[in-house]
């Protein structure tokens, strides 16, 4: 129990640190945001009025308290750019609301593909005896890891979209219109993210399997008369999978970050695309909220991985204290 309590405490502290960091980082630059919003109509009086309206005139700790209170209630402030109606700016949570499920679906799809592809290739690779095949796998995975996701995305658009016409590039289908069309479109960006990650996962798993294969318990199982298949699935894999679980935490974090780029390539209206456009237009409340969202998501993923790790490998629980 001590292990889980310790991990939970660390998570809470980290989340608190993240909230402080995200808040203060975006306090360095609020001045030009006001000037930016008013544009050519800026006069000192109007700037001052807007600053008061946005609450930017109060001391920083007060603003942090107000901000974190809002965050706890799901109120992330209002966008500087997007208008709700004639006299109100759109609230950040509304702006993000319908984009979040898109990115989430994309990330989950990509993760599923990474796991299936990575495990399949990793196991086949570890099992292959021929040196040439081993080298071929080595070259393919190394190559797949060297391809940046945006270029892979472009290649996929060219091959599947333009030559095979399996989808129309740039014609994103909303899940409101057609669920099948939505998945049919997202499968391609998800694939673009999954290829380099599954190459990484495959290499990792293959090394773990080979490492386990040389240990005594495998020899024992063999001399007991276990079939190779049984040794692989019941003995080696169960041990080899443990380091891979930790590694999956990093993979998920990178998928979340990778979606920022890939959404841009495939014109998927998710939070990554919103983040990039908000950075270019300097819409700081939106940038701040999205960074907070992604950072918290990454931390929670690592936490879950730690917990799963503790369950799968009891040694972790006793070693930690």
């Amino acid at each position: 129990m001590k292990y889980f309590a310790k991990k939970t405490l660390t998570l809470i502290i980290t989340l608190f640190m993240i909230s402080i960091a995200t808040f203060f980082v975006f306090q360095i630059i609020p001045g030009d945001a006001v000037a930016n919003m008013l544009g050519t109509e800026a006069t000192p009086e109007r700037e001052e009025a807007l600053r008061q309206q946005l609450g930017l005139d109060k001391p920083i700790p007060v603003r942090y308290a107000a901000w974190i209170k809002g965050v706890a209630h799901g109120d992330f402030g209002r966008s500087y750019r997007y208008a709700e109606n004639m006299n109100e700016m759109m609230s950040v949570s509304r702006l993000i609301g319908d984009k979040l499920p898109v990115t989430l679906t994309l990330a989950v799809l990509s993760l599923i593909m990474t796991v299936i592809l990575g495990f399949f290739i990793g196991i086949v690779w570890a099992g292959c005896k021929s040196r040439t095949l081993d080298a071929v796998f080595g070259i393919i995975t190394q190559g797949a890891m060297a391809v940046p996701s945006f270029f892979l995305g472009i290649l996929i658009i060219f091959f599947f979209g333009i030559i095979l016409r399996m989808f129309t590039p740039g014609q994103y289908v909303s899940y409101h219109d057609s669920v099948a069309g939505f998945f049919g479109y997202l499968i391609f960006p998800a694939f673009a993210m999954a290829v380099p990650k599954s190459a990484m996962a495959a290499r990792f798993l293959r090394n773990a399997i080979l490492e386990q294969g040389g240990l005594d318990y495998v020899r024992t199982a063999k001399s007991k008369g276990c079939t190779d298949r049984r040794i692989m699935w019941r003995h080696i894999l169960r041990n080899a999978i443990i380091p891979v679980i930790t590694f999956m935490g990093t993979v998920i974090a990178e998928i979340v970050a990778g979606s920022i780029v890939v959404e841009q390539v495939f014109s998927v209206p998710g939070i990554g695309r919103l983040l990039v456009s908000s950075i270019s237009t300097r819409d700081f409340p939106v940038v701040q909220t999205l960074i907070l969202y992604i950072a918290v998501a990454v931390m929670v993923v690592y936490y879950i991985v730690d917990i799963v790790y503790g369950i799968v490998d009891p040694r972790m629980r006793s070693n930690e204290d």
Binding site: T14, M17, V25, F26, I28, I29, T250, A253, E254, V256, A257, G258, I260, V261, L275, V276, I279, S280, R282, F284, V287, I291, I294, A295, V298, M299, Y302
Partner: peptide, 21 residues
């Protein structure tokens, strides 16, 4: 370790959004 656990592109985006392009 905390900084390292964040994907580098995300960290780079934060810094670029503050400094500009």
């Amino acid at each position: 370790d905390a900084l390292n656990s964040f994907p580098s592109i995300l960290m780079a985006l934060v810094v670029v959004s503050i400094l500009g392009t």
